[in-house]
């Protein structure tokens, strides 16, 4: 792929499925390769799904340096809730190209991420609002925004995996 205009819906789907597989397999260093240098990773607060991160409280508002720290913490065992790592399974569906712009493709998708730990199970449900760009012929996230449908992180209590 050399031009965004050549990216097909199937390319986008395959990219998102491969992305989910890397995260479920905890191949986090490899996963970092899916992020553009100017990536923004956002998870709005559950009571404000349309949050503007400059004015509103969110759960996560990471740039690349923060995501790298998250990954380092997750791999190094310093995220207590993920040491040892939980099991996850991501179902990514309803993938749609919402808009094609000159420099990015806006993609929407639904997700259900099951997490298993301490013999308990929980599910994170929501939708993605992604901005994908081409860097060196490969799709990457310039914006990765996961909007949760739950009203509260109950009984999850914490968000220690990557959405």
């Amino acid at each position: 792929m050399t031009r965004l205009a050549d990216v097909t819906p199937a390319d986008v789907e395959q990219f998102l499925y491969a992305d989910a597989a890397l995260l479920d397999a905890w191949k986090l260093d490899e996963w970092l390769g899916h992020l553009a240098d100017d990536v923004s990773y956002e998870v709005p607060a559950t009571d404000l799904p349309n949050a503007n991160l400059a004015t509103d409280l969110a759960l996560i508002g990471d740039d690349l340096s923060r995501i790298r720290s998250r990954v380092r913490h997750l791999r190094g065992g310093s995220v207590l809730g993920e040491d040892p790592p939980s099991r996850t399974r991501r179902l990514v569906t309803n993938v749609r190209i919402v808009a094609r712009r000159d420099d990015a493709i806006d993609v929407a998708a639904n997700f259900a991420i099951y997490r298993f730990k301490h013999e308990l199970s929980e599910v994170f449900v929501g939708h993605y609002e992604h901005e994908l760009v081409l860097v060196g012929g490969a799709l990457k996230f310039r914006k990765r925004r996961a909007v949760l449908d739950m009203e509260t992180l109950r009984p999850h209590g914490k968000l220690t995996i990557l959405l």
Binding site: V43, L53, A54, T55, D56, L57, A58, L59, I60, G61, D62, R66, S69, H73, V79, L80, G81, L153, H156, G157, K158, L159, T160
Partner: peptide, 22 residues
Amino acid sequence: RMRNNFLQVGPAGFVSSDDVEV
């Protein structure tokens, strides 16, 4: 202010999420 809050407190922050687990 917001940018620094995301990092520290809350269930996905670099601080509070470990309190929840402990």
